[in-house]
Amino acid sequence: MSIQHFRVALIPFFAAFCLPVFAHPETLVKVKDAEDQLGARVGYIELDLNSGKILESFRPEERFPMMSTFKVLLCGAVLSRVDAGQEQLGRRIHYSQNDLVEYSPVTEKHLTDGMTVRELCSAAITMSDNTAANLLLTTIGGPKELTAFLHNMGDHVTRLDRWEPELNEAIPNDERDTTMPAAMATTLRKLLTGELLTLASRQQLIDWMEADKVAGPLLRSALPAGWFIADKSGAGERGSRGIIAALGPDGKPSRIVVIYTTGSQATMDERNRQIAEIGASLIKHW
């Protein structure tokens, strides 16, 4: 067993022997301040990774656009098919120029040779490549099948209805392509620590998230040296922004954090800054 596999296998073990965790309302004060600064709703939840206990939450059962955070769930569904012998990570998928959609920095470079399922998941999570996500959605049967996968996990809230990039439209009061912070946090925890996926697939999923290259201005910008984070960000229309993450000190994750916002007129930089400040408060009061 590799060191990384050992780390993920012992996530519940280490967490069980940690000192009790206590909620700190100071972080919620910052979440509410972010709402004021952005002029928009902000949803927040913080779960203990081992027990699933909610440590703090704000608007945990209000719907927010998922945006690209759905790509972690998508690759979880792909990995479940791999575990069941219905898919192979090494299978190569070929596609054409007509398949390319807006923001496809990886797939646009491989029109000639195609990409493997493993490479597509890596591109979808680490670079948020939209064509990679659409190609992977095709392998599982489309958005409705991802929703069905989530329902089978016990998540009857999260739903995907459309493809990239239309799913980022974020129309107010439109339930399409949305989740709730509580539902997303619980589902992410199941994917990373539950028995739904094999140990190898859980490790692969967290490795992809740990290698995320496009979430630097968010929670990662607030992390002290030595902290662990595996995350996936999302951005959408109407001032929408979000991030889902597993993080913790001492090089291992111990909490799940989900943050979503929508309806702001603020710039992307300002949305990023507010999420980073929430992260800084979380870490300060850990």
Rank of each mutant, 00 (worst) to 15 (best):
P25H: 15
E26T: 14
T27Y: 02
D33E: 06
A34I: 10
Q37C: 06
Q37H: 11
G43Y: 00
I45N: 03
L47F: 11
G52S: 13
F58M: 14
P60A: 13
E61H: 12
E61C: 08
E61Q: 11
E62G: 08
E62I: 07
E62P: 00
R63W: 05
P65I: 03
S68Q: 02
S68A: 01
T69G: 02
F70N: 10
K71E: 00
V72R: 02
V72Y: 02
C75Q: 02
C75L: 05
G76Q: 02
L79H: 02
S80F: 12
S80L: 13
V82E: 08
D83A: 08
A84L: 13
G85Y: 06
Q86N: 14
R91L: 05
R91I: 04
R92N: 11
R92W: 11
Y95S: 03
L100M: 14
L100C: 06
L100S: 04
Y103L: 05
S104C: 07
V106K: 14
T107A: 07
K109M: 08
K109T: 10
H110D: 05
L111T: 07
T112F: 13
V117Q: 04
E119H: 12
A123L: 04
S128A: 01
S128P: 01
D129K: 01
L135G: 03
T138E: 15
I140D: 01
H151Q: 10
H151W: 09
G154L: 05
D155P: 01
H156E: 06
R162L: 04
L167R: 01
I171V: 15
N173T: 08
D174Q: 11
D174G: 06
D174C: 10
E175P: 12
E175R: 11
D177T: 02
D177Q: 00
M180S: 13
A182D: 08
A183I: 10
A183K: 15
L188I: 15
L188V: 06
K190H: 15
K190A: 15
L191K: 01
L192K: 00
E195P: 15
E195R: 13
T198F: 07
T198E: 10
A200F: 13
S201C: 09
Q203W: 06
I206V: 10
M209K: 02
A215W: 00
A215Y: 04
P217M: 09
P217A: 13
P217G: 10
L219M: 07
R220G: 04
S221K: 06
A222K: 11
L223H: 03
W227C: 00
E237Q: 14
G239M: 00
R241C: 04
I243V: 08
L247E: 03
L247K: 01
G251F: 09
G251M: 12
I256Y: 04
V257S: 04
V258F: 02
Y260E: 00
Y260R: 00
G263V: 05
Q265M: 10
A266F: 11
M268E: 10
A280K: 15
A280S: 13
S281L: 07
S281K: 15
L282E: 04
I283E: 05
K284P: 04
